[in-house]
C-alpha cells in the first residue's frame, strides 16, 4: 500500500549553481525520491520572496523546502544570514495566516550532496505527514 506521505507535494527552491546540480546528480545516480517533489531553480537561496513560498502553500503544496547554497554560495557569505532571515520572516507570516511554520524547511545542499538531498526529502515528507 502507498504510504500517505507518497501523495504529499513539496516545492523545492533549488539554486542554479549549487543545489540544482545536486538534485540533477541524484537523478543521474538513480537515487530515488518521491515524485511529489517539484523543483524551481533560482540564482541564490537568499533571493526567494516570502510571497512565493506562501503562494505555493496556499495553492496546494504541503511543504516548501529551501535547498540553500549555505557557505558554498558563489555570491558570498551574506547568503547564509540573508537566507536564514527570509525563512524566519516567512515563518512569522505563515503563522499569522494559520499555516504551520514547520511546512517551511531549509537546509544547505552542496553541489554534490545528492544523497543528503534524498534523505532530506524523505524525512521532510515524513514530518509533513505528521503535521
Amino acid at each position: 500500500m502507498e504510504s500517505s506521505s507518497a501523495k504529499l507535494k513539496v516545492l523545492v527552491f533549488s539554486t542554479d549553481k549549487i543545489s540544482d546540480p545536486a538534485i540533477d546528480l541524484a537523478g543521474l545516480l538513480k537515487k530515488h525520491y518521491p515524485a511529489g517533489v517539484y523543483t524551481i531553480s533560482v540564482p541564490c537561496s537568499s533571493a526567494i520572496k516570502p510571497r512565493w513560498i506562501i503562494h505555493a502553500l496556499q495553492r496546494g503544496f504541503d511543504g516548501v523546502f529551501i535547498a540553500a547554497d549555505g557557505t558554498d554560495c558563489p555570491y558570498g557569505e551574506l547568503c547564509v544570514p540573508n537566507t536564514a532571515n527570509l525563512v524566519a520572516a516567512t515563518q512569522i507570516k505563515m503563522e499569522k495566516l494559520g499555516i504551520a511554520p514547520q511546512r517551511l524547511k531549509m537546509a544547505a545542499i552542496c553541489s554534490i550532496c545528492a544523497e543528503p538531498f534524498v534523505r532530506y526529502m524523505n524525512s521532510f515528507l515524513h514530518d509533513l505527514d505528521t503535521i
Binding site: I23, D24, L25, A26, G27, L28, K30, K31, H32, Y33, P34, A35, T39
Partner: peptide, 14 residues
C-alpha cells in the same frame, strides 16, 4: 523543463 534528471531518472520505478 527538466523531465529527465529531475523526473524520469529520479522516479524510474513510478
Amino acid at each position: 523543463v527538466n523531465i529527465r534528471e529531475q523526473c524520469s531518472w529520479a522516479h524510474s520505478y513510478e
